[in-house]
Amino acid sequence: MSSSFDKYQKKRLISSYFSVVLSTTLVLFLLGILGLLVLNTKKVADYYKEQVPMTIFFKNSAKDVEMQQLQKTLALADYTKSANFVSKDQAAVKLTDDIGEDFVAFLGENPLYNSLDVYLNSNFVSVEELEAIVKELSEKSFVNEVSYDKSLVSKLNANIKTIGFWILVACVFFAIVAALLINSSIRLSVYAKRFTIKTMQMVGATKGFIRKPFIWKSVKMGIIAAILALAGMAAMLYYANKSLPQLQLIDNKLLIGSVFAGILVIGILITLISSFFATQRYLNLRTDQLYT
């Protein structure tokens, strides 16, 4: 009979430890993913900003040397990521493919202009910066027009700020939820051993001596959970980088290492603090209060 009860208690304890590790792993994984997302928000935002072109249309009277010189000058400018020349013939072929009709044959001439598609560095993709660049380029005598999608740039910057803010809010929220869930799981595991705690105290064991094995056990579970969470994060980061290699998500090794180290430290600290206060609570209870 006693053996059956011992087996039942052992299974119950293992189940309690498993639930602690599982819940801790899940919240640490979610927290880690949010942390990576927060730290990579700027990189993702910069990538999409740098896909917005500013197009310079040349007058038909513009000389080849003038267009080539401007392209070289822009290539060296601080605000330029790349500058690609598009001849009027290339533009005509592309537009014909897009509309499915040879408009040049219909009109009898090519009405398009030679142009430069300029892609800017992300720091300069704002309406204020672009307007200043447009004004400067428009003053050149051989430039017919400089255009960009002003509404797209405005919405892109506004949406990036909004998304960044809510990601940060979500990260803080889930950090609090993580602490509460892990604390709850630890308290349940300590609750299952409350009679053992009180028995040790009654035979003269000091509070520090009693707390030590519980804290060490919780810290080990925190380390295991953190390692499992980090493995999940690494797998997700690998597949995300494989799907979107242009974002270069794994290039900044120091940043990724900092997030991984942070998750490990959080897993240890939360389990350590939670187990300390959970054992302290039962150490301060009277024997009759253990049944309530």
Rank of each mutant, 00 (worst) to 15 (best):
N110S: 13
D251C: 03
M233T: 09
A83M: 00
V38A: 03
K88A: 15
L168M: 14
D6I: 11
N284D: 14
V125T: 06
L137A: 07
D102V: 05
K94Q: 14
I250V: 09
I160S: 10
F57P: 02
L249D: 02
A179T: 13
Y282C: 10
N114R: 05
L34N: 03
I186S: 10
Y239G: 05
Q201C: 05
I176L: 11
L30F: 09
T24M: 15
D288T: 11
M54W: 01
P213E: 13
V52S: 00
T271K: 07
D102G: 06
L230G: 11
M54T: 01
V265S: 02
D117H: 13
F276I: 05
R12V: 00
N60F: 00
D117K: 15
R211T: 01
L181K: 08
V172Q: 04
M221K: 09
A75T: 14
F57G: 03
V146C: 07
V146D: 05
R281G: 04
A192D: 00
A75Q: 14
S243C: 01
R286S: 14
Q51I: 09
A91S: 15
N241V: 03
A235R: 07
F29S: 13
S115F: 09
A158E: 13
E131Y: 08
V190Y: 04
P53E: 04
S122K: 03
K72V: 13
S258D: 06
T96D: 07
K220C: 15
Q90C: 09
S3R: 15
G164Y: 01
F5E: 13
V118M: 12
V104D: 14
T271H: 06
R12Y: 00
A91H: 06
L180T: 04
Y291W: 03
L31H: 03
K59T: 10
K88F: 09
I273H: 00
I270D: 01
Y191G: 01
F276G: 06
F165T: 15
A105Q: 15
T80E: 11
V259I: 06
K42N: 12
I176H: 00
L181H: 00
E66V: 09
Q71D: 04
R211Y: 06
D117P: 08
I273N: 03
V93F: 05
E136W: 11
A170W: 04
E129K: 14
K94D: 13
Q68A: 13
E136S: 13
S243M: 12
K161C: 04
S15P: 08
K72Y: 12
Y8N: 12
E128M: 11
Y8T: 13
P245D: 10
A105C: 12
I266C: 00
L120S: 02
A83P: 00
L152W: 00
K94Y: 11
S126G: 12
V52G: 02
G164R: 02
Y79S: 09
L30H: 06
D6P: 02
K88P: 15
Y79A: 07
